[in-house]
Design a protein around this nucleic acid. Sequence first.
DNA 1: CGATCCATGTAAGTTGTTACATGATTCG
DNA 2: CGAATCATGTAACAACTTACATGGATCG
Lengths: 184, 184
Amino acid sequence: MLKYVLLGALSYQPLTGYQLKQFVDNTTKHFWFAQTSQIYRTLKEIEEAKLAVSEVQEQDKRPDRRLYHITQTGRDDLKAWLIQPMTTVEPTKDALVIRLFFAKQMDKDSLLTQLKLQRTLHQQQLLLYRTEIIRQIETSRAQHPELDRDAQFWDMARRNGELAEEYYIRWLDETIQRIEAMPD
Amino acid sequence: MLKYVLLGALSYQPLTGYQLKQFVDNTTKHFWFAQTSQIYRTLKEIEEAKLAVSEVQEQDKRPDRRLYHITQTGRDDLKAWLIQPMTTVEPTKDALVIRLFFAKQMDKDSLLTQLKLQRTLHQQQLLLYRTEIIRQIETSRAQHPELDRDAQFWDMARRNGELAEEYYIRWLDETIQRIEAMPD
DNA sequence: CGATCCATGTAAGTTGTTACATGATTCG
DNA sequence: CGAATCATGTAACAACTTACATGGATCG
């Protein structure tokens, strides 16, 4: 639920919708993505539920902006969600695997092209986890030494992404080989 | 899109909504899950779009059932989707990773309990990919030797699930260790 | 002077979930 | 005799996506 991603971010500091979109884009994107429009709508719902309050700030040479502050109710709600145990495995949805499942309808070439394109994309994603995201975490650790404990959790999340991409690439390589070995 | 999962299944043989639910549950569930209600609604949409036609069969001592037959338009639509290349990485949504990301709000114990519960669940899931699903594929290969090529693709999809669970368990173990090593 | 950044949203549509509703047959 | 299987759906709601709309400031 996007609601808890936003509350989680707001638990650190007051933010605007625009800033929350940036937060999602550089940090949680890989585990929970959201469109701008959805963020603004969810913020409205959060305020209606009194989990946050907003205040409009006038700015010089910039559009006005609406800052959201988390309330105690919001913190309680977030914490209740966080400690609530997950008793099932999260179902995955992967259109590439579905395509492969019904791949007898496809010719070998277009299938291989698709798999190789995905390999390139996942390779880029892996690189991101190994360089840019590590750098991001290091930067905020340097700037905010009091967030050291937090940064460890962020790195565990990052590591999930890194391992996920490693396995996916391994699977793609294996799959490409198996398909290349198949008779036409 | 569920639509293509259903069309994919119908491309092998005519099926009822009930049978499609079973198909999803024993085969695509791990890559694309769907509720019964959604399947029936999607079937209606598929028929409206003339991608399949249905016929009611009366049965002895069983409720009537509605068999869906894929049309040529349906086959064409399915194929067009299959060969359409995916140009991005599929965004993932994982509530456990989000919980971890904001884990500073949680006490160590409830966090560890949650991670260990997930480990058990994913271990069970891995076992499924390594035994039951292999057996399923072997059975249909034995019964339908003409589906040998198809069965190879099914096994590649299965292998994706197996590797995904392996990495996830590895990540959970690593994460549990890191958290246990953290000061309280 | 064109692109990007800052900043906020609405409207319409699609997709997916949860809860409800029914009822005969078969198996242990 | 109770649980599971066979069989089909509706209604309401929740979540997410896509397209549209606006407009000044700053940077290269």
